[in-house]
């Protein structure tokens, strides 16, 4: 059964990859994030395929899909749902909001007010929502892909650090390369391809894969390496504040998922390095002396400064 399940993962990567061309690394990261039960933040310009990625993932993994377009007048109830009085029954009936789905695309999350943002983020963290004193479980699996537009910051509410921390990974899709672009232009409509995508696995199988994460072996030398990374981020004067223990846990979980995705029963430093930019990029901030450095450079510096133990 094990091999079969992992075959399905490969199949999913292949299928999603046929929709989002030339973005295999991003697709793998997104899948790892999903396997690690984390949430994904995609920071990119409009039209780069964020929605398509979320949609394709949902289809391939057989997940219920909801898209929430965040606007400045969006209220928490618009996301979570509300109790509405029904006259026939003479009682309040709860109408679940769009958050009651397995995969949610929260589009342009930074356009909503902090109050609405935190409603979503709390739901992401807890896996449940409390509406009018009643706690309701969110479906399982529950995976949020949020997007935000980095370029136009006017009239937005950028996510504070504490909220950013709720996302396991932050990735960017970026422009496709020439070859992929050509194939994209020559190909048929993405919508039609999406509609044709086969379902590669059942939610139960995804759940099983998520459970298998714990059995991916982490050896002492690897923990040494992870600890060295964390320690360096805390001691070096390049960063303003180091990585939190939660970041460390997330890094390890993501690395495990990456290893599982590559059908390995144990985690290698390479796995850590592969997920490191996505996991810590939004958690590291340059110190006042190094303000000009981009997050990518910061991660690169961290990566190169810490030795892989022999």
């Amino acid at each position: 059964m094990g091999a079969v399940l992992e075959d399905r993962l490969d199949l999913a990567i292949q299928q999603v990859g046929s929709t989002i061309l030339g973005k295999e690394h991003a697709i793998r990261l997104a899948l790892s994030c999903l396997l690690a039960r984390g949430h994904l933040l995609i920071e990119d310009l409009p039209g780069m395929g964020k929605t398509t990625l979320a949609h394709a993932l949902a289809r391939c993994l057989g997940l219920q899909y909801q898209r929430i377009q965040f606007t400045s007048d969006l209220l928490p109830a618009d996301i979570l749902g509300a109790a509405v009085y029904e006259r026939q029954r003479e009682t309040f009936i709860f109408h679940p909001g769009p958050i009651f789905a397995q995969l949610i695309l929260a589009d342009e999350i930074n356009r909503a007010t902090p109050k609405t943002q935190s409603a979503l983020l709390e739901a992401m963290e807890e896996g449940q929502v409390t509406i009018e004193g009643e706690t309701r479980q969110l479906p399982e699996p529950f995976f949020v892909i949020a997007t935000q537009n980095p370029a136009y910051q006017i009239g937005t509410f950028p996510l504070p650090e504490s909220q950013l921390d709720r996302f396991l990974m932050r990735i960017a899709l970026g422009y496709p390369d020439g070859q992929a672009e050509r194939a994209l232009l020559e190909g048929e409509d993405r919508r039609e391809i999406l509609a044709r995508l086969p379902v590669c696995m059942m939610p139960a199988q995804l759940h099983e894969l998520q459970g298998r994460l714990a059995s991916v072996h982490v050896a002492a030398p690897l923990l040494d390496y992870v600890q060295a990374l964390l320690a360096f981020s805390r001691q070096s004067n390049r960063f303003r504040g180091g990585l939190s223990p939660r970041a460390g846990l997330g890094l390890l979980r993501a690395a495990r998922a990456w290893a599982l995705l590559h059908r390995r029963g144990y985690v290698l430093p390479e796995d850590v390095q592969a997920v490191l930019p996505a996991v810590v990029g939004h958690r590291l901030h340059p110190s006042d002396d190094h303000l000009e450095q981009s997050p990518a450079t910061l991660v690169e510096q961290l990566l190169e400064a810490v030795m892989v133990p022999a």
């Binding site: 290698l268 430093p269 390479e270 390095q273 990566l303 190169e304 400064a305 810490v306 030795m307 892989v308």
Partner: peptide, 9 residues
């Protein structure tokens, strides 16, 4: 081997 290079890389 670069100091930060993993074995497979």
């Amino acid at each position: 081997r670069g100091p930060h290079e993993g074995p497979l890389d």
